[in-house]
Design a protein around this nucleic acid. Structure first.
Lengths: 192, 192
DNA sequence: CACTGAACCTAGCACCGCTAGACAATCGAG
DNA sequence: CTCGATTGTCTAGCGGTGCTAGGTTCAGTG
């Protein structure tokens, strides 16, 4: 049954195309510009085809988000692996996180600002999201300090990173002092 | 010219009504439910009347945001005024901020998540927003630590608070460990 | 060849933010 | 007091949104 296999392959390929197109469009013109009509036009299919792959726009955002989570986890692990002191690792993690948010604003929005219909901090949380949190935890556990639960510390550190990323992204913090903020955050939060 | 004065009064009153209604509706059913049609129906005028007060929906969100900023500044000042040690003041500030975000989610969204068309961190930033930041700064300056610019420290502290508030609000952090996070944040960030 | 089921599209629903243009009420000038 | 101008408000409608019902086309099977 090679025929059916080919069809399945093509279907999977088209699904990747949808997600990639949505991401690219969002990155270039913002999520507001990602409408089902435009998306359909870009992939050269009619609108309802999208709904044979995803329940709705929300799920498309969710797909971009999970893809982004995988990339972010990889980026964080790569950055922390090459650093050779706890302090260097935490600094690398911080810079990498904020850099990822700045370079992929649409993906970051899909992950942490928009509603992609994903469950967070639960058992049924998608694996890539859990893994992204795990990547942070692996690095941050060693600087949590005595008697502080590593998970709690990671949550707080992550929240701080997110706050800086989110406020910077929406123009509420100026990008100029970014480096000073990183230093201050690492100095104070991490127990070295 | 009492006639014109009365008209102006009524007009101002209607504007307050619009903002209050938008806020209430957003608080009860979320900002998505705040449509110009519904808003118009609630205030018992036709849709275009809204546009004689505000340029568009964005400006209405902005009006709710500035109102919220004023309230938040007052809440923070009230909470920090009654505390009698730097540590108690910072803890009170933190709790008050997160409490405000939790109790007024729609207002918090208008302030820090949605686009209300307001300028932030600039000269032409509306006074209430500047004042809210000032309220934070007044309390946080004394715990910034030597050689750390109070403004920078306040920005970072605020970003951390926002991160926690935002992630909690969107279900990405569980509300259970809220108190532990407050303790950890104050312990680490503030120099006491 | 006739039939079935899947794939896909056209057309349309109800809603959105926003605005043009009609209409009534009020005002100031002659 | 009358009459044009101004003001305030409305109805109706534009172009867009996410999403879906229902029809058409076409490949695979008995």
């Amino acid at each position: 049954m090679s025929m059916q296999e080919r069809k399945q392959r093509e279907r999977a390929e088209r699904e990747r195309l949808i997600v990639a197109t949505a991401r690219e469009l969002a990155e270039q013109q913002g999520w507001d510009a990602v409408t089902t009509r435009r998306l359909a036009e870009f992939i050269e299919y009619s609108q309802p085809v999208l709904y044979s792959h995803f329940r709705g726009k929300r799920e498309i955002i969710g797909a971009v988000a999970t893809q982004g989570a995988t990339e972010m986890a990889a980026a964080v692990r790569a950055a922390t692996a090459t650093a050779d002191s706890p302090r260097a690792r935490v600094t690398a993690l911080t810079r990498t996180y904020l850099d990822f948010a700045a370079r992929n604003p649409a993906v970051y929005d899909a992950l942490f600002l928009l509603d992609g219909g994903l469950a967070y901090a639960r058992e049924d949380t998608p694996e890539p999201l859990k893994d992204a949190f795990a990547a942070l935890l692996e690095c941050l556990a060693e600087v949590a300090g005595d008697g502080v639960h590593p998970g709690l510390f990671t949550e707080v550190f992550w929240a701080c990173l997110h706050g800086i990323a989110a406020l910077t992204r929406t123009g509420r913090l100026l990008p100029e002092d970014a480096e000073s903020r990183v230093e201050l955050l690492v100095d104070r939060l991490a127990v070295l």
